[in-house]
Simulated assay, not measured.
Amino acid sequence: MERNLTHIALFAALIAVLGLVPKIDLISGVPITAQSLGIMLCGTVLGTRRGLLAVLLFLTLVALGLPLLAGGRGGLGVFVSPTAGYLVGFPLAALVAGFVVERWRVDVGVAAFAGAVLGGIGVMHLCGIIGMSVVLGKTLPEAALLAVPFLAGDLLKTVLAAGITRGLARVRPASVLSRA
């Protein structure tokens, strides 16, 4: 139990630290950040349950007002901003990524890449597009066009998440809890 809490807290901190990487603001109001890499790693390394809890801990701290999102944003206001859909998608993305790695018994790197693509790109952008549509008053196709600039960077993040997960599995197999 204590080990699980430590992993959950460490990965919530990892997401926060990735928020220190300078963000790139887009016209949609949703910035390009490194934090989605942390979300993907929560799922691919910690697995479904622990990954979900790490992201929920991070979002709770953000809701309490800690400036942990890229650019030093925090507080309840971010949950009604153009980024709201992405924030809702964070825990779901970690959940899906973890589920894929836990259930799909192929090479851990391949499973991590697939999980990161399905969760970190598919689920996260689905939620983000719906959120932008609602908050910005755009149609779903218009909001989907606003998400296009994120795709190349997110694909790079999925490759990084798969590589990091595979590397951890080779060096310390027990540290990849999604496969334990």
Rank of each mutant, 00 (worst) to 15 (best):
I27Y: 15
A13C: 15
I164N: 12
A147F: 06
P22L: 09
F58D: 09
V171C: 12
F113A: 04
L61S: 08
V21Y: 02
S36K: 07
G128H: 02
N4C: 00
G85E: 03
M132E: 06
G19L: 04
M124I: 15
G77K: 14
D154Q: 07
F11C: 07
G29Q: 00
S178V: 11
P173H: 15
G163V: 03
G51W: 06
L146Q: 08
M40A: 05
V45W: 04
A152Y: 09
G128C: 07
G29N: 02
G43H: 04
G98L: 06
L160K: 06
A34N: 10
V55L: 05
E2V: 04
C42A: 03
G47D: 03
L64P: 12
V17R: 15
L145N: 11
R105V: 05
L177P: 11
I39H: 08
V55T: 09
A94G: 12
L14A: 14
L26V: 00
V80R: 12
R105Y: 05
I24M: 01
P91N: 06
A169S: 15
L140H: 04
I8N: 10
L56F: 01
L59D: 00
L37K: 13
L156G: 14
L56K: 03
A97K: 07
H7Q: 15
G38C: 06
I24K: 01
K23A: 15
K23N: 09
L145M: 13
M1A: 13
M1K: 10
H125F: 11
L156K: 07
S178M: 09
R172L: 14
I27P: 12
L151M: 14
G74Y: 06
G153D: 00
A162S: 13
P67R: 07
E2T: 05
I121L: 03
H7W: 13
L151C: 11
P173A: 15
L59Y: 05
L20A: 12
L126M: 07
V134P: 02
T139S: 15
L26R: 00
P22C: 10
V30N: 00
L26I: 01
E142Y: 06
V100R: 10
V108N: 08
G65I: 01
I164G: 13
D154G: 11
A144C: 00
P67F: 10
T60A: 14
V135W: 02
L52H: 05
V123P: 13
G43K: 02
F150A: 05
R3M: 09
M132V: 04
I8Q: 04
L160H: 06
T165C: 09
D107W: 10
V134I: 15
S36E: 10
L95F: 15
G72E: 11
G51F: 05
A13M: 15
A116P: 12
L151F: 11
A12W: 02
V55C: 02
S81F: 03
F99T: 14
V110H: 10
A54I: 02
R170C: 13
A147M: 05
G109I: 05
Y86M: 03
L14M: 15
S28C: 03
L18C: 06
R105W: 01
H125L: 11
A112P: 03
T83A: 02
L5G: 07
G75F: 14
R3D: 04
T83F: 03
T33S: 04
